Computed example of a mutant assay.
Amino acid sequence: MFSENIYVNTNFKNKFDSSDIDTDSWPDPQKNRSQKSCHKFSKVLFTSLIIYFLLLTILFSSALINKVWSCCPKDWKPFGSHCYFTSTDLVAPWNESVENCYQMGAHLVVIHSQEEQDFITGILNTRDAYFIGLSDPGHQQWQWVDQTPYNDKATFWHTGELSNDNEQCAIINHRWSTGWGWSDIPCSDEQNSVCQMKKIYL
C-alpha cells in the first residue's frame, strides 16, 4: 500500500518536471501589459490629432465666413469696423471737405459713441480743428452725412454751443479748459477734416 502511494506521487511529479513543456510559449504578463498600454496611447494620440484638425478646419471656415481679415488703406487708422483719415494739409470749407472724403470712397466722420469720440480725439492735433459729418440745414435740425439718425443724447458739444443759427456746420476741437468737444461754425470757414470709411474685407 505504501509503495503504491509513492509510485503514484512520483508519476505525478514526473509529469510536471517533464522537459516537453515549452516555457517560452507561456504569455509574459509584463510584456502583454506594455503592448496594451502602447496600443491605448496610439489610439489616444490618433483621436487627439483628429480632434485638433477638426478644430482647425472649423476655425478656418469661421474665419472665412466672418471675414476676419480686414484692413485699412495706407495712412488710415483702424477702429471697430471703420478706418479714419485726418486731413491736415487740405484745409477747406465744409462742402469741399465732404467732396474730398467722397473722392477717397469715404465720408466725413460720423460719431455715435464715447469710445469713437475718444479714439478720434486720440489721433488729432490739439492745435487744429476738424470738420465732422454733421450739419444743420436750418432750425437746429442737425443731420449726419451718412443719413444715420442724430441722437442729441449721444453728442459731445462744448458748453455754450448751438447758440447761433448762422453756424450750421460742426467741427471737433480742443479747448484747454474743457478738452475735446464739438462746436458749430459757419460752413464757409476753412478747416481740416476727418474722413471715415468701412474697413476693406479680404
Score class of each variant (00 low, 15 high):
Asn32Asp: 11
Cys38Ser: 11
Thr155Pro: 00
Gly160Lys: 01
Gly160Asp: 02
Tyr7His: 10
Leu134Val: 12
Asp22Trp: 04
Ala129Leu: 02
Ser177Glu: 07
Tyr130Phe: 15
Leu90Pro: 00
Glu99Arg: 13
Tyr84Met: 01
Leu49Asp: 01
Gln35Pro: 00
Gly160Leu: 02
Ser48Glu: 01
Ile123Pro: 01
Asp184Lys: 08
Ser193Phe: 15
Glu4Ser: 12
Trp180Met: 05
Asn32Leu: 09
Ile65Glu: 02
Gln117Ile: 02
Pro93Arg: 03
Trp26Arg: 11
Val44Gly: 01
Ser113Ala: 12
Phe156Ser: 02
His139Pro: 00
Val91Lys: 12
Ser61Pro: 00
His107Asn: 14
Ile51Tyr: 10
Gln103Asn: 14
Glu161Cys: 03
Asp189Lys: 08
Ser81Asp: 13
Glu96Pro: 00
Lys43His: 06
Cys38Val: 12
Val68Lys: 09
Asn173Gly: 08
Asn14Met: 10
Pro186Gly: 05
Lys13Thr: 08
Thr126Pro: 05
Thr47Met: 05
Gln147Tyr: 09
Pro137Arg: 11
Glu115Ala: 14
Gly80Asn: 09
Thr23Ala: 11
Ile185Lys: 14
Trp76Val: 03
His139Met: 07
Ile111Lys: 01
Cys195Leu: 09
Thr23Met: 12
Asn32Phe: 06
Trp142Thr: 07
Leu162Gly: 00
Pro78Asn: 04
Ser62Val: 02
Ala106Trp: 08
Ser42Leu: 14
Ile172Met: 14
Leu45Ile: 11
Gly105Phe: 05
Asp118Cys: 04
Pro29Ser: 13
Leu90Ile: 05
Pro137Ser: 13
Thr159His: 02
Ser3Asp: 13
Leu124Lys: 06
Ser42Gln: 11
Cys71Val: 04
His158Val: 03
Ser87Cys: 00
Gly122Ala: 11
Glu167Leu: 09
